[in-house]
Amino acid sequence: MTTDTARNIRVLIAKPGLDGHDRGAKVVARALRDAGMEVIYTGIRQTPQMIAEAALQEDVDVIGLSILSGAHLELFPRVVEELRTRGVDDVLLFCGGIIPQDDIPKVNAIGFKGVFGPGTNTNDIIEFVRNNAPQRV
């Protein structure tokens, strides 16, 4: 008889950059918890190295970045690069915050599948994660 317990989706919610806009990240973290996920929240002022290292150690399925400072096109590629050097190649990346419409295709091209701006209903975020999180073990 197998006793495999249900595997909870593990999500890292991180805030790269130097600004302190953490309300959105906390709202998203709580919404995902209430949807039954295990959310690792690392707080503000995360460097790309810290985010990638936390993702590796925590072996998360999903990484969500919250960014309102305007530095996404500078910071997102560095996060992806840090993940690659660590061999973390099977996570779902998505993001939210203030990302201008014109930048969305660029952010997608960097590897972020979902982009959620101000006013997003958290149910849409939950549904996105449920539908796209990789099932690995």
Partner: peptide, 12 residues
């Protein structure tokens, strides 16, 4: 206990 979810904040 309601959702089985969790916020793991010790890394902060």
């Amino acid at each position: 206990p309601f959702s089985n979810g969790a916020i793991l904040g010790d890394r902060i």
